Amino acid sequence: MSTSAQLRDALTDKLTEGGTLADPEWRAAVRAIPRELFTGAYFRVVEGSIPTACRVVREGEPGWLEGVYSDETLITQLDGRVRPDDVAEGTVTGSFSSSSTLPSLVLRMWQQLGAETGHRVLEIGTGTGYSTALGAHRLGDANLTSVEYDPVVGGAAAAALKAVGLAPRLIIGDGLRGDPDGGPYDRLIATCSVRYLPLPWLHQVKPGGKILVTLSGWSYANALALLEVTGPGEATGRFLPGYTSFMIARPHDRPPRPALALLPGDERPSLIDPTKLGDWTGSWVAQLAAPSAERMGAGAEQILWDVSTGSQARTAPDGKGGWTVVQRGPVRLWDRVEQAVRDWQAAGEPHQERFGITVSAAGQRVWLDGEDGPGWDLPI
């Protein structure tokens, strides 16, 4: 059986060979931090289960430690309250609400942030504390502040950090408020997604500083952006290559909705193939166009429901090689999605790295191929 140190070395070597770990100081952090102290027991998805069910993998069980050092996200909380130790036996269902993100993504983001010795960094979302530990090892305790919304999650992270001899500044509170008492910071990194850039972040990071954050929405499409703060409350940036997703910050999550009732509406032919919403960037473009809509369905049968107005849109094959759409409500959701997807298609269906974002007193706008190109306002 491999030891923790051996598995850490193997993970470090794997991430180095794969190109994730280019910086020797971050490699040293991975070798030094025992991930098992931050995860303990975790949930593992039961393959093929509908609805998705999880079983608990407990400390000391066969495969537990190997799972800890796999390059995988480990689910550590369901429904904002259920932790692995709360489940006696069998399986459990629920929405994922906290996790230890896969190490390759955590380390890639730390390096994309460009945090260097001497930088003061604000981390939004302590989670299990593993990412926090890596950052504190690399930058020093005094240079890292981490904010966690959930006091139970934050308390467990604090205990784990203490156990490995690290003491960064930890705050229990709303990460969307940042750290009003601790700025200015050189860098901000978020390990949750948001619908728009919280204004406090833009005042707590000094001009010339960087913010790395995943933008998401109520359809749960994601895109990772790196912004440079250009002045108080102002920033500009680009979206990055790859496929990054995080759980949405709880204050930004969609409100509860009643059971969906599909109602009659106005029918017409669809001008786009609804399956384009199954594409990583296509789904994100659709979300930009209809930011208050939740997307359901699959393939050619898409359903959009605007949880703020009750507006609906649903598509279906027309039996002749095309598609129809039925819309109702004050917001013509499919009209907006169609236009956005057609603008994206006209540009060649590029990945998100062709998109950028500008934040100013006028609002927050995502654009394609330049600020004078097609653009969409974020729902502040």
Rank of each mutant, 00 (worst) to 15 (best):
S311G: 08
G242H: 04
F38V: 05
M247T: 14
E123W: 09
I75N: 13
Q345C: 00
A313V: 04
G173F: 02
F96H: 14
W64Q: 10
E25L: 11
E148A: 07
S100M: 15
Y149H: 10
V56A: 05
Y42P: 02
G173L: 03
A293Q: 12
E338R: 09
D372W: 00
V359A: 10
A261M: 08
T73P: 13
V68M: 02
Q345H: 00
G265L: 04
G173Y: 04
L11R: 13
V285L: 07
V325H: 10
S311E: 04
E353F: 02
A289L: 07
L378K: 15
I272S: 06
P274N: 08
V341C: 02
A286E: 05
I50Y: 10
C192Y: 12
A223R: 14
L224F: 02
L37C: 01
A142K: 15
K210Q: 09
L161N: 13
A163Y: 00
R44Y: 00
S98T: 09
L15G: 08
G233N: 11
G90Q: 14
L188V: 11
A29E: 05
A346E: 08
A293L: 11
P255N: 11
A316T: 12
G18H: 14
F246C: 08
V366N: 10
G233R: 06
V359T: 06
